[in-house]
Structures are given as structure tokens and as C-alpha cells.
Design a protein around this nucleic acid. Structure first.
Lengths: 133, 133
DNA sequence: CGGGATCCGAGACGATACTG
DNA sequence: CAGTATCGTCTCGGATCCCG
């Protein structure tokens, strides 16, 4: 191998995400999106209520959290369980499929987090060269 | 294991992506973003030129591809190599770090692609219940 | 508490034209 | 070929108010 990924992985990459009108793109965007990734990451720790989730994912607005959860629920990654009590109580948790997705996502997030020092120095070098802009 | 992820993974999740002003969020967004993920996926196959990349990632505009590549290069995930010839020739390839990131990303993409049937049926069920809206 | 409805600004994005 | 510049659109996303 010459520094690229093994052929097995590359061949398996011949899916259609690269194609415009492909059903997997929207789902992938829900998963990897700004709030989708953080929401899945938070739910990987266990079942959470709406406002618990809201506190965990710092910076998310009610609207976006609600929107994100609906998209993930629709895709079958998150299960929503509303109890008809007062005050209302709604729990969110990952489905089995959601757990698999979250696991891969977390692997990615952990890698990026762990390598941030490298990223930061790379940025400095880049900015130093192209100081003008 | 009670259906959630192992404690080891969960504990490791105590990073700061969940925090608003954290340097890793932007990078994560570059990686997982709409065009970032597809660009890294395409480059995982090997070194590509600008327009090759543009053809591979269906639907991306010149502007967005250029922008995406600059962000990824700045983060140290992509290496840009310009040859001062005429006509101009510029090759893009993953850095070692970029390859690691791409590998995790591809694992995620493949999982989502492979489970699309489940996602699709989940959607139908969801839409059937909430037909009204 | 768990949302939905609405308004509004900022930035993402695409199409086109232009340059080296 | 490999971009940059400009412009118009359109969606994202936050703030606010409201309801069960």
C-alpha cells in the first residue's frame, strides 16, 4: 500500500453518497451535522430528557434541538418516549441502529479531539505563510 | 453491557466538543460537513486533481470545493501540491492525519449506507403516523 | 417541562464571469 | 486547468412568544 487506504475499503466506497440525488446524503447530513453529531454523542451516554440534552449540548437552541431530534427519530436512530403526565416528561434514547452509528461517530470525534494539537500547529503554519487575506 | 456503550468510551467522551467555544468544533464541522465528508472520502482513494475531485463529488460547485479544500488544508488534513507548469496542475492528497480521519469517516459512511433500508422503512413508519402536519 | 409558530439576520451555497 | 470575484438566493439558526 502506498499510503492510501486498503483496497477493500476503497472498493466498498463505490456507494452513491457521491451522487447528487441519493437518499443516504440527507441521513448522513443529519448524523454528521453540527447538532446531529453532538446529540448522538450525548445520547450515547444513555437516555436523556429534552432539557438534560439541551444542557449537555452547549449552545443548542430549543428549536434546533427539537428539529434535530425529529430528524434523527424519523431516520430511526433515536427513540422518543413521551409519558402523558404533568408536567410532561419525554425521554430520548438511541435505537440499536443509533448506537452503532454513534459508536462510529464517537470514534471519529475522539480522533479529532485527540489530534487537535496537530491541527492547531498546522493552522498556525498555514496562516503564517498566507498571512495576507 | 446494558445496551449503551462501554464505560471506557463514555468516559473518554468527556471532551469539550460539547462546549460552545471549543477549538475542535470548527474542525469537526469541516470534517463532517456536507462537502468535507465527501471530499475526504474521495481523497481516500488517492491523489486527485481539482477537477477530478469536482467530478467525483457530484454536485459540488467550484467555489465550495475550493473553500472546503482550503479549510481541510488549513487543518492539516489535506496536502496541496501545485506544480508551476502550464496549464497549471494541482494535486490534492490526504496527509497521514487526514488518512486516519478519513478511515473513521468512511467507517461511518459505510455503516449508514449499508443500513439505509432500515432508515427508509423507519421513515415510512414515522411519516405514516404523523401523516398530518 | 416539552415543545410549536413566527420573525429576522447572517452566512451558506450556486451560477456566472473573469484571471493567470 | 485551477482557481478568484461578485452577486443573488435561500436555508440555517437564534430570539421571542405562546400553548398544553
Amino acid at each position: 500500500m502506498d499510503g492510501q487506504l486498503p483496497d477493500a475499503d476503497v472498493d466498498a466506497l463505490a456507494f452513491d453518497v457521491f451522487t447528487r440525488r441519493c437518499p443516504s446524503r440527507p441521513t448522513l447530513e443529519h448524523v454528521t451535522g453540527r447538532w446531529g453529531s453532538l446529540t448522538l454523542g450525548a445520547l450515547a451516554e444513555g437516555r436523556l430528557r429534552f432539557n438534560e440534552l439541551r444542557r449537555r449540548v452547549d449552545g443548542v437552541s430549543e428549536k434546533m434541538l427539537s428539529q434535530t431530534l425529529q430528524a434523527l427519530e424519523r431516520d430511526g436512530l433515536v427513540h422518543r418516549e413521551a409519558q402523558p403526565v404533568n408536567p410532561p416528561r419525554v425521554d430520548y434514547e438511541l435505537t440499536p441502529l443509533g448506537q452503532e452509528v454513534a459508536a462510529r461517530l464517537i470514534a471519529l470525534i475522539e480522533l479529532v479531539e485527540g489530534r487537535m494539537p496537530e491541527v492547531l500547529t498546522a493552522r498556525e503554519r498555514y496562516d503564517a505563510v498566507r498571512g495576507a487575506r
